[in-house]
Write a protein that binds this DNA or RNA. Structure first.
Length: 275
DNA sequence: ATTCGGACCTGAAAGC
DNA sequence: TGCTTTCAGGTCCGAA
């Protein structure tokens, strides 16, 4: 489900609510969610304070004051929700952290059970997966360098977390529309000017999406249960056969790599190798 | 080396 | 109405 803007939205709402809280107890209702270790390591969180909440790509990091961190990936349907401990626990809630002197608790809920939580030592958290750079913390020269000696199709590369961290299917589609680039363009054919447009589009779309607190298509909610509203700003994602907002041509849908691409074939011309 | 399908899961929506 | 199929904000793995 959540891509960079949604995870960022969750982090922001989560930080305001639980930063500084001391863990009093936990419940692991579906042990499968904890991937690297047994329940035993979680015992070490008891009595520890949350000192920081961070995002890296689509991952959520919760740091405690004893050098331990929870590294969480929401995958498609994962949610972190702050709610009253009096609220009934539904069957998709897999993990709960309760806090000393607080009625509100943190619940991890995930209908499809793809999501994962790792409990690791804080210094090891960022080494855990080799994610590419953050798209909003990169100036153009570095962005341009990433594309050197790459041969993949443009959209595949944007979705590759080891290339750039945080972009998923919604935002890849929206960024490519904004930049007027075809998803199947081989990146070796991109010219300087087009890369610049791509970099600008990436920043524009992601920043705007964060401002709108993410896209709620079906599941996404922030830690307080609020939906985002960037879905109202989508130009092409999910808009098959509707008119292109720029030129009126019908939006096309293409399946490749097991995922849908939505684009305007008039605004986003496919580049081909010419000999 | 890329690309594909399948696997992991569940439920909403569309199709018949 | 009710059963079946398709599809989904992600990622990993193994086979062509």
């Amino acid at each position: 489900m959540p891509e960079l803007p949604e995870v960022e939205t969750i982090i922001r709402s989560l930080s305001l609510k639980i930063k500084g809280f001391e863990v009093s107890s936990f419940k692991l209702l579906f042990p499968g969610v904890l991937r690297n270790s047994s329940q035993k390591i979680l015992e070490r969180l008891r009595g520890r304070k949350i000192i920081n909440l961070r995002r890296r790509g689509k991952m959520i990091l919760i740091d405690f004051d004893n050098d331990l961190s929870l590294l969480c990936h929401l995958k498609m349907t994962g949610q972190f929700l702050i709610c009253s401990s009096r609220e009934p626990i539904d069957k998709h809630t897999h993990f709960i952290l309760s806090f000393k002197g607080q009625l509100e608790e943190l619940r991890f809920r995930d209908v499809r059970k793809f999501g994962s939580i790792f409990c690791l030592r804080t210094p090891e958290v960022l080494k855990f997966s080799k994610l590419g750079p953050e798209p909003l913390e990169m100036r153009f020269p570095r962005f341009r360098r990433l594309f050197q000696s790459r041969r993949a199709r443009l959209k595949n590369l944007l979705l590759n977390q080891n290339f750039i961290a945080g972009i998923g299917n919604i935002y890849a589609n929206e960024i490519l529309f904004e930049a007027k680039l075809h998803p199947l363009t081989p990146v070796s054919l991109l010219e300087e000017e087009e890369l610049l447009e791509l970099w600008k589009a990436m920043r524009l779309v992601l920043r705007k999406a964060i401002k709108h607190r993410g896209s709620s298509i079906r599941d996404f909610k922030d830690a307080e249960g609020r939906e985002g509203n960037f879905q109202d700003c989508h130009q092409v994602y999910g808009k098959e056969s509707l008119p292109c907002p720029r030129c009126g041509e019908r939006i096309e849908r293409l399946c490749h790599g097991g995922r849908s691409s939505f684009f305007c074939s008039r605004c986003q011309k496919e580049k081909r190798k010419t000999f």
